[in-house]
């Protein structure tokens, strides 16, 4: 897995949600260099293992077992070396305090997973396009 350059890192514990997200990204042709990890600890291990090959985008689920999305976000944004990686939160709820807290920690975008799969596909597709193709990150 790590031998190949990763463009999008999807951190999601729910396999159904992960499959739907990957399907939506694939539809937009963005799933070629995608890595799916199932919890926050795995994600942190991966990201700090090879700091020279950082992903172009991290899609992070908020609620996960062990290390949750907010914790991962806090660690990434607190570290000089990982601060510039764009992080987009994917979450089931539009709970006000979650939105406020993640923005305080420096999240780049916050997406509530829509129930409508078509809408979800569109949202994830646009998101991937923006961060992978249009956005310029400092190298």
């Amino acid at each position: 897995m790590t031998t190949q350059a990763v463009d999008i890192l999807l951190v999601e514990d729910n396999p159904d949600d992960a499959e739907l997200a990957i399907r939506a990204l694939r539809k937009s042709n963005l799933a070629n260099h995608l890595l799916h990890l199932q919890d926050g600890q795995e994600a942190l291990d991966f990201l700090f293992n090879d700091l020279n090959n950082k992903p172009k985008l991290v899609l992070l689920d908020l609620k996960m077992p062990k290390v949750d999305g907010i914790e991962v976000l806090r660690i990434l944004k607190a570290d000089e070396r990982t601060r510039t990686i764009p992080v987009v939160m994917l979450t089931s709820s539009k709970e006000e305090r979650d939105i406020v807290e993640t923005y305080k920690l420096g999240v780049n975008a916050y997406i509530v997973k829509p129930l409508d799969f078509e809408q979800f596909g569109k949202a994830v597709g646009q998101l991937g396009l923006f961060w992978l193709v249009l956005n310029q990150t400092p190298q």
């Binding site: 129930l115 409508d116 799969f117």
Partner: peptide
């Protein structure tokens, strides 16, 4: 309510998503 908003919606999303697939 926090649990309802997160955990109840998750399987719903799967139902809806897979039905759409």
């Amino acid at each position: 309510t926090y649990t309802v908003s997160h955990d109840l919606r998750s399987p719903l999303r799967s139902i809806s998503g897979y039905a759409q697939i």
